Amino acid sequence: MQPTEMTVGHLIKRLSACDPAAPLRLAMNPFFPMAHRLEQIIDVTDETGSPVVYLAEGPYADTQLGHLPPEVAVALAWQAPVQAPPRRARRSARPAGGQ
């Protein structure tokens, strides 16, 4: 089954529940998740004559913001949740000299 594409209407509906003053970011590349600043919206007609809207990062060097926060990658199912290893009980301190 082919995945359905998100429409502009669906995006507007989802975004209407968000804080309108919040910065908009783009999560890219599930194998090396990075966060990008979203700065451009391009409305074009594709080769079949259908309208298509592209969301794009900006043209500046600082558009890529760095690694995607782990909780976002987990929420997108791009990474599995990671838990800290269990703590072991400490052994008694060794005497000076390593004996």
Rank of each mutant, 00 (worst) to 15 (best):
M1D: 07
M1K: 09
P3M: 02
E5P: 04
M6G: 04
M6A: 13
M6N: 03
M6V: 07
T7D: 00
V8P: 01
V8W: 01
V8R: 00
H10T: 00
H10M: 06
R14G: 14
L15Y: 09
C18S: 12
P20A: 14
P20G: 04
P20L: 01
A22R: 15
P23G: 10
L24F: 04
R25F: 07
L26M: 14
A27F: 01
M28A: 09
M28G: 12
F31M: 03
P33K: 04
A35E: 10
H36D: 07
R37I: 03
E39L: 07
E39N: 08
I41P: 02
I42G: 12
V44C: 02
E47Y: 05
G49D: 07
S50D: 08
V52L: 14
Y54Q: 01
L55W: 12
A56Y: 00
E57M: 09
E57P: 13
P59F: 02
A61I: 04
D62A: 05
D62E: 11
D62G: 13
T63N: 12
T63E: 06
Q64N: 06
L65M: 02
L65I: 10
L65Q: 06
P69W: 09
E71M: 15
E71Y: 11
A73D: 12
L76G: 09
L76Q: 07
A77L: 15
Q79L: 08
P81F: 00
V82P: 11
A84S: 11
A84G: 13
P85C: 13
R87Y: 01
R87F: 08
R88D: 11
R90E: 15
R91L: 03
R91Y: 03
P95H: 05
A96P: 15
